[in-house]
C-alpha cells in the first residue's frame, strides 16, 4: 500500500459539516474493522470542545496536533476557504492533505499546493474521492465494500468511475493494493507521475490501472514515467471536443487533449487501453 497504513493518524478539517460528520463515521468504522487508528481529531473554527461521533473537535489544526499524534488530514472545507485550510494544515505540520472539496478556484489550488510543497506536505486532490488501501486504511469518501485486498494499484482522475473499475476488479477476483483518486480539476497536487512513482516503490503492487479523462496529457506523462505493467482506460472518447482555451492551452498540451488522441498516444507507447471498464480485468490478467 502507499501513502500510509493502519497506523496513520488522521484529522478531519470541517468535521462538523454534513459531509465531514458523515464520512468521519464511515472512516472510523473502516478503521475499527481494520484495527487501525482512523480519525483521531477534528477541526472546525469556533467549535472547539464538541465531539463528532466521539472524535474531539478543535478550533485549529495546530491545537488538534498539540493533543493528538496525526500526520494526515482529510479536508471537507467549503470551496472558498479550502485553499486556506490546506495551507493551515501544511503550516501546522500535516504531511498528507487529502482534499475532497470540489469547485475550488484554480488560483487557490495553485497557491495551496505550492505552499504545501514548501512545508513538505503532499496534497491529494482537490475534487477527489481520496484513497483506500483495502484492509489498512481509508482517507476520504470511497465506498469501501467494493474493494478487496490484492496486488493491483488503481489511480484515477474520476470518482464514481473509479468505484466502477474497483467493482469490476473485485468481481473478477482481482484485489487492490491502494486505490487513489487524484481529482478531476485542472490543477491537482499528486499527479499520475507521483502516484505511479509510489506504486513502483511498493512491494505489494504488481500492476496498475490508470483511469484518465479528456483534457491535458498527464496520463501519458504518468505512463511514460513507470516501469510497472500498466493498463489504462480513458473516459470521454465519444465526448464532443473540449472547449479550447485560446492558443495557450493548445500550445501547452501539444495541440491535443481529447480522449481519442490520448488513446492513440498510449497505443503508440504499446500500453493496453481498455475500450470499456468491463474489459479492464482481462487486460490486467494479461500483464500480471
Amino acid at each position: 500500500m502507499i501513502y500510509g497504513d493502519k497506523n496513520l493518524g488522521v484529522i478531519v478539517q470541517n468535521i462538523t459539516g454534513r459531509q465531514g460528520t458523515f464520512h468521519t463515521e464511515l472512516m472510523n468504522a473502516y478503521a475499527r474493522e481494520a484495527g487501525g487508528r482512523g480519525v483521531v481529531a477534528g477541526v472546525a473554527p469556533g467549535k472547539a470542545g464538541r465531539e463528532v461521533h466521539g472524535v474531539p473537535v478543535y478550533n485549529t489544526v495546530k491545537e488538534a496536533l498539540r493533543e493528538h499524534d496525526a500526520t494526515a488530514s482529510v479536508v471537507f472545507v467549503p470551496a472558498g476557504a479550502a485553499g486556506d485550510a490546506v495551507m493551515e494544515a501544511a503550516h501546522a505540520g500535516i504531511e498528507l492533505a487529502v482534499v475532497i472539496t470540489e469547485h475550488i478556484p484554480v488560483h487557490d489550488a495553485m497557491k495551496a499546493i505550492a505552499y504545501a510543497k514548501l512545508h513538505d506536505c503532499t496534497v491529494i486532490g482537490p475534487n477527489c474521492p481520496g484513497l483506500l488501501s483495502p484492509g489498512e486504511c481509508k482517507l476520504g469518501i470511497m465506498p469501501a465494500h467494493l474493494a478487496t485486498r490484492g496486488e493491483v494499484g488503481v489511480v484515477s482522475r474520476s470518482g464514481t468511475l473509479t468505484y466502477e473499475v474497483v467493482d469490476e476488479l473485485t468481481r473478477a477476483g482481482i484485489g487492490q493494493s491502494t486505490v487513489v483518486g487524484i481529482g478531476g480539476d485542472p490543477v491537482i497536487g499528486q499527479t499520475f507521475v507521483d502516484v505511479l512513482a509510489r506504486f513502483e516503490e511498493d512491494p505489494h503492487t504488481k500492476a496498475v490501472v490508470v483511469i484518465g479523462e479528456v483534457g491535458g496529457n498527464l496520463e501519458e506523462e504518468g505512463v511514460r514515467s513507470t516501469d510497472l505493467p500498466v493498463v489504462t482506460y480513458i473516459a470521454g472518447v465519444s465526448a464532443p471536443p473540449e472547449k479550447r482555451m485560446g492558443h495557450a492551452g493548445a500550445i501547452i498540451e501539444g495541440g491535443e487533449g481529447d480522449a481519442r488522441s490520448k488513446v492513440r498516444r498510449l497505443h503508440a507507447q504499446n500500453i493496453p487501453v481498455a475500450s470499456r471498464p468491463s474489459e479492464i480485468p482481462k487486460l490486467i490478467r494479461e500483464v500480471l
Binding site: 482522475r157 474520476s158 464514481t160 468511475l161 479523462e213 479528456v214 472518447v237 465526448a239
Partner: peptide, 24 residues
Amino acid sequence: GNGAGLTMSTLDLIEFYNGRAANF
C-alpha cells in the same frame, strides 16, 4: 449518471455498441 467520469464512460459505452447518446 453521477460523476463526470462515470457519465462520460456511459456515453462511450453507448457509442461502443453503435448507439447515439442524446445528452450528458
